[in-house]
Design a protein around this nucleic acid. Structure first.
Length: 637
RNA sequence: GCCGCCGUAGCUCAGGGGUAGAGCGCGCCCUUGGUAAGGGCGAGGUCCACAGUUCAAUUCUGUGCGGCGGCACCA
């Protein structure tokens, strides 16, 4: 007898060894049909896997997240089979499920083209129609290696050879096609369904290593039903509409052109948004006890050598020569400059902590392939600051920073912040005892700030542990903006010191920190987060006054002047166009408030106030409208 | 940087070895209207750059530059 315990706690007994499929069928035909794999004592297995002793069994259905991930993995296999049937000589490598779909990396001399997708998809559908049974087989390492070598599958052979001793080597067979895989898989290809679509082609390195051969990666998406697939494709279209590069053009915020790749031409409206962010940050930093400074753009190579950047960061630095052949570098970071200010005069322990802030314009020669709109640029401005403090002050300064950061994120409309804690990397400087203290202090401070965090093991900077603050936008994408890094190394390298209570020289600790990260990137995130519909205080044009007929021109000018006097950013639309047209145009331009004025409004000194996205308008007395808008447009903080 | 795709009007895109096309936008005119596109006329192009093939190249080939999507990178 085999006793099977189901997730609801009920126990079923069977005469002998029983498969997951049998168990599902014994519970009900609906479950049998929806079942994709089973979990036996928590371990994922094929439905055909026989359970021969008492166990806890969970039937995983296609409706679950795990079930969907399985479908995607199977879809990758079906893709690989289709490709090998259509393009003999193509080698298979890996093909995992990923968010929203899957990919498979192939090796083939000739490039694939998106034009091949239709034929591949058709063949995939045929493989699903064939309903090939998927069979798990356990092979010896020698057999598997020989098999893949003889098949010309050098990547698979290499992978088998590299598997650790003692692991079970399993191959999955579907029809004539076979792949090395740990599984589990569907019982047959027919269970996959056809709600999949090949999406794009890309290059990828074998084992992620640029020194190794380049593979061709085919991305696909796969869902349970056609309805889900359509919904996903629709979601992609919506995401494209909030792409900051597109909105940047549509809203006339900025542009980039090929004579200045990686740098931003800010247009008046975009620069207004930028300056609003800057003014807000300056205010928050001042209130937060920071002193603002400005340090040189061009600094002699010697300082970068001393700071360690010349060694670690050389290929990202732009340099120029002066007439004495002296090499100057455009600063990629502000820290060495800040240390120079710190070093002027003598600092007492009584002066610490010193919080030195700079809206630091930096240049980094990013690889061309990394550039991406505002998100990844070569010229950017950080809301940078360095806190010079004692080791004892790390906790309180970190907590203080976390509080400021969360408060600022909230003002910008971000509530969902992921904190990642990166601890010591393999290659690092500094004694372990110092790392112990630094990591402990960071953890303690993060806890004190009440921030839950995830661990990023070994991802810290070489000089110290760090916190990364990742914003999640309205459609769930993550953007790393803020950071806090504990640094014991730079004060040493650049010989920063303070006089302690004991009258002796001591090294300060430096906390490198940023909240927005860079203005450019943060504005990109803001645009995408709000899909261009910025809150009133950030909107470059807050109010448009639009007339219905030219009779209203005079009153409209008066309204506009009153708005301006109330410090609202306003445009006045007196054009000879219909009100429908004006409303549509300013709505598409994402202007938050339209004040429509016609005869009636002029007579009663009111405005018809229309909110972006709203269906109705509200007649408000002019003075009330001004008071309300001015209050709403006030900068937070 | 690597792989693939792409580069035609301000924008979105069609076209194709021999006077360059559409919609939107822009300008002018008509229209003075009540909350997401009123009508007419018109202007606007080094078809990314350079080289090659050709009687002839925006179109074909090569190289470069740039964009997009990934990969790698993100100190």
């Amino acid at each position: 007898m085999v006793a099977i315990t189901l997730p609801d706690g009920s126990v079923r007994e069977y005469d002998g060894a029983v498969s997951g499929a049998d168990i599902a069928a014994s519970i009900g035909p609906g479950l049998a049909k929806a079942a994709v794999i089973v979990k036996i004592d928590g371990v994922a297995r094929d439905l055909a896997h026989l359970v021969d002793c008492d166990a806890a069994v969970e039937i995983v259905t296609r409706d679950s997240d795990a079930g969907l991930a399985l479908l995607r993995h199977d879809c990758a296999h079906v893709l690989a089979q289709a490709v090998q049937e259509l393009f003999p000589g193509t080698q298979i490598t890996f093909g995992p499920a990923i968010e929203d779909g899957f990919y498979y990396d192939f090796h083939r001399k000739e490039p694939f083209s998106p034009d091949d997708f239709a034929a591949i998809e058709e063949r995939m559908a045929q493989i699903v129609d064939r309903d090939e049974t998927i069979i798990r087989e356990v092979w010896t390492r020698a057999d598997a290696t020989r098999f893949f070598e003889e098949a010309g599958e050098t990547f698979k052979a290499e992978h088998v050879a590299g598997l650790p001793d003692g692991v079970e080597i399993t191959l999955y067979r579907q029809g004539d096609w076979i792949d090395l895989c740990t599984g589990p898989h569907l019982p047959s290809t027919g269970r996959l369904g056809k709600s999949f679509k090949l999406m794009k082609l890309a290059g990828a390195y074998w084992r992620g290593d640029p020194a190794k051969p380049q593979l061709q990666r085919v991305y696909g998406t796969c869902w349970r039903t056609d309805k889900e697939l359509r919904a996903y494709l629709h979601r992609l279209e919506e995401a494209e509409k909030r792409d900051h590069r597109r909105l940047g053009r549509e809203m006339d915020l900025f542009h980039i052109q090929e004579e200045a790749v990686g740098s931003i031409f800010w247009h008046p409206k975009g620069w207004t948004l930028y300056r609003t962010c800057e003014t807000y940050m300056r205010r928050r930093l001042e209130a937060g006890g920071y002193d603002e400074v400005k340090t040189p753009q061009l600094i002699d190579r010697g300082l970068w050598e001393r700071s360690g950047h010349w060694e670690k960061f050389r290929e990202h630095m732009f340099t120029v020569d002066d007439e004495h052949d002296r090499v100057l570098a455009l600063k990629p970071m502000n820290c060495p400059g800040h240390v120079q200010i710190f070093r002027q005069g003598i600092t007492s322990y009584r002066d610490l902590p010193i919080r030195m802030a700079e809206f630091g314009s930096c240049h980094r020669n990013e690889p061309s392939g990394a550039l991406h709109g505002l998100m990844r640029v070569r010229a950017f401005t950080q809301d940078d600051a360095h806190i010079f403090c004692t080791e004892d002050q790390i906790v309180s300064e970190t907590k203080r920073f976390c509080d400021l950061l969360m408060s600022i994120y909230r003002d910008f409309g971000f509530e969902d912040v992921v904190v990642k804690f990166s601890d010591r990397p393999e290659i690092r400087t500094g004694e372990d005892a110092v790392w112990d203290r630094a990591e402990r202090a960071l953890v303690e401070a993060t806890d004190a700030a009440g921030l839950p965090y995830t661990l990023n093991p070994g991802e810290g900077a070489f000089y110290g542990p760090k916190l990364e603050f990742v914003l999640r936008d309205t459609i769930g994408r993550e953007w790393q903006c803020g950071t806090l890094q504990v640094d014991f190394v730079l004060p040493e390298r650049l010989d920063a010191s303070y006089i302690g209570e004991d009258g002796a020289k001591h090294r300060p600790v430096m906390l490198h920190r940023a909240i927005l990260g860079s203005f450019e990137r943060f504005i990109g995130v803001l645009i995408e987060h709000y899909a261009g519909r910025l809150p009133l205080w950030l909107a470059p044009v807050q109010v448009v006054v639009a007339t219905i007929t030219s009779d209203g021109d005079e009153y409209a000018r008066e309204v506009a002047a009153a708005c301006k006097a109330a410090s609202l950013r306003i445009e006045c639309d007196l054009r000879n166009e219909k009100i429908n047209y004006k409303v549509r145009e300013h709505s598409l331009a994402k202007v938050p408030v339209i004040l429509v004025v016609g005869r009636r409004e002029a007579d009663e000194r009111s405005v018809a106030m229309r909110r972006l996205g709203g269906k109705k308008q509200e007649i408000v007395a002019l003075d009330d409208a001004l008071a309300r808008l001015a209050a709403e447009a006030a900068m937070p903080g």
